[in-house]
Design a protein around this nucleic acid. Sequence first.
DNA 1: TCTATTGCGGATATTTAGCATCCGAATTAT
DNA 2: ATAATTCGGATGCTAAATATCCGCAATAGA
Lengths: 161, 161
Amino acid sequence: MRMSDGVEWAAHACALLAALPEGVGVSAALLAEFNDLPPAYMAKHMQALARAGVVTSARGAGGGYRLARPASEVTLWDIVEAVEGPEPAFRCTEIRQKGPCAAKPAECRHPCQIAAAFHAAEKAWRGSLKAVSLASILADLARKQSPARRAELLAWLETKL
Amino acid sequence: MRMSDGVEWAAHACALLAALPEGVGVSAALLAEFNDLPPAYMAKHMQALARAGVVTSARGAGGGYRLARPASEVTLWDIVEAVEGPEPAFRCTEIRQKGPCAAKPAECRHPCQIAAAFHAAEKAWRGSLKAVSLASILADLARKQSPARRAELLAWLETKL
DNA sequence: TCTATTGCGGATATTTAGCATCCGAATTAT
DNA sequence: ATAATTCGGATGCTAAATATCCGCAATAGA
Ligand code: FES
Ligand code: FES
């Protein structure tokens, strides 16, 4: 079981967007350059975020991406769902209905105990991710990151806008 | 992100082993037949469980697999770890150390906030799986499954032993 | 209007991970 | 000893994720 690297990329991109002043758009190419990522593939992930309504896109000169909601309203789960899709990692294939001792469909109105346990575990996982918003990430970051470094980052961005 | 189907197979196989009387071994081929699964591939997963110490294997005639510990001491996480490996689904590639504004390694003594949040979520997921043992699964099953059906299953098994 | 910029979607190649199978080695009952 | 049984690692195959490119549509500014 492995999560796509695109999730890390998208999360960092969103964190950067959240740190930006209101109203400015950033192109996918610049977001990719910031972390030295393949521009074309980064663009794909940004499109996924836009389709999911996490960010809004504006075409044309001076366009780019920006957050669709306040940073406190965007959680890590929103990003995972946008990039990886909403399907659970564990997918019961109902093997109990196969084989010589197959359970009858009528006996399967309740989900299998094993499947239920896995779904509960994933619910806990999602809940943990939903509790973390971009705002809380930035708050943590501000506590541990020196103000000088933050200024350095913003300065570099301004030269590219 | 997708979990291997082998996890479901292994979980059901272990549940079956747990339901069996003490001291009997079941071959991988029979475990596969029980749920209509590819025998050779099922065997591979059983080997993974054996390597991880979840089950013990005995070769030769009359051999087969059996649980290495009491059913109450085997959790779903043990099975996932054996089949999928212990690595976390989210793997931080430290992209913050890449690009024109790369963070210096000295600034990365603490893990990235994003990585920390994902690791916390996975810890919650694993914790939920560790709370479910084979014994608790069988107990739930016994509550919802008719005694007649349970007898039917054991009867079929005896014909194959 | 014309041009430069930027996002969008589809088509495509490449790489990786999962799926499935086979045959040899080890062990046990006869 | 011998044959039957079963595990174990090595090997090919298939599907999916990864990564890239290019044409099209839309927008802003000259
Ligand atoms: S039948 Fe799918 S988990 Fe039990
Ligand atoms: S650098 Fe990997 S999650 Fe932030």
